[in-house]
Amino acid sequence: MANAEQIAAQILAAKSLCVSSSWLNTFLASSQRNIPASALTKTALFRVLASDIRQSLATNPTSVFPVDVSDPNVQERRLPGPIPVQVLDIEDIGTSLWSQVEAIERVERGEAIRGREIIRTISVGEDNEATGNGSSNNNSSVGTSSASGSSGHGPHRLILQDAGGTKAMAIEMQRIEGISLENLSIGSKFLLRNATVARGMVLMNPDSATLLGGKIEALDKPWREGRKARLLQKIGSMEAEANQTNDDI
């Protein structure tokens, strides 16, 4: 069975994540004995990606955001990193709010869009059952990306948090594979290297942001369940502001 130092070194070499020794010792204490070192390391990495990095990762001055990272008075700065961060929120700022609400409602009705045609969808469980019985349904479609109609949309705006708890707003300057409302979970981890921060905004592109994956279930589930209500609230606020402006005029 590998010891904590070996596992920490392997995760650091593979993903540039500096795992907290206390977190790793707790993980090892709860793990079964006689597990191969390679399997134990993979399990530890999976748990790290599913954890709150404020508890699972150690920090040093170069692995966290500057405390004033969101200061809009700083025109531009470079963060050498590597800085591991987790996603707390994601918005598609390239798609109208009403379009996003309508996409959610199509999913709620069990519908998807294929071209200009609205089709019924089946659940993953039903699809697996049909496959197991050797049958298929050519008129059905499976997949959350097609069901929402937002795959490939963007750019996206995210709220990121480092292992020290500091939060920063980020924007997708160039398309980054894996960033979408359906495919990116709340709690997903990114590794930032040589990232530029301009006026308090982290500028993300494929060269500076590497998606490591992961999800914090306790954050992701309520975020998705409350997304439609948040969108409607934002639409209501915008309409109220517009009405107030008209009244003032």
Rank of each mutant, 00 (worst) to 15 (best):
Q55A: 08
V142H: 11
G154C: 14
L184Y: 09
D89I: 08
L219Q: 03
R224C: 01
N139D: 08
G143N: 06
I118Y: 15
Q100G: 12
G94P: 02
I176V: 09
S141C: 13
W98P: 03
F65S: 06
T62V: 15
A168E: 03
E182Q: 13
L45H: 03
A39D: 10
S22R: 10
I93E: 08
L24P: 00
W223F: 05
K228L: 12
Q244Y: 07
E5H: 14
T131F: 15
E182P: 03
Q6K: 08
I171V: 14
S51D: 09
V69A: 00
N139T: 10
D89S: 07
S70C: 06
M204S: 07
R193F: 06
Q6W: 05
G226D: 14
H156M: 00
L181C: 03
S151L: 07
E182V: 06
R33M: 10
T245L: 13
D162M: 01
P66M: 00
Q6M: 04
Q86D: 04
K167R: 14
D89L: 04
E239A: 13
L12Q: 06
G115C: 01
K221H: 10
N73Q: 14
A50C: 15
R114A: 08
V67N: 15
L192H: 00
V64Y: 00
S136A: 14
I35A: 00
S21E: 05
D68S: 09
E108G: 05
G213N: 03
F46T: 11
A8S: 04
S51L: 07
S135I: 15
I159K: 03
D162T: 02
G149H: 01
S148I: 04
S185W: 05
N183T: 13
I122H: 01
L79K: 03
I216K: 01
G236D: 11
R120I: 03
G94N: 09
I119Q: 10
S148P: 05
T196K: 06
I179P: 00
T95L: 09
T43W: 04
L12P: 02
G94L: 12
I118F: 14
S22H: 10
N138E: 08
G213E: 01
A13Y: 07
M204W: 08
C18V: 02
P72D: 10
L219Y: 05
E102F: 06
G165K: 01
L160S: 04
P82H: 02
W98F: 09
A242N: 15
Q100H: 12
A163S: 07
S70E: 08
L158I: 02
I113D: 02
L24C: 00
A37C: 08
A8Q: 04
T121C: 14
L158A: 00
D162C: 04
W23V: 00
A163G: 03
L12A: 11
L40C: 01
P61L: 12
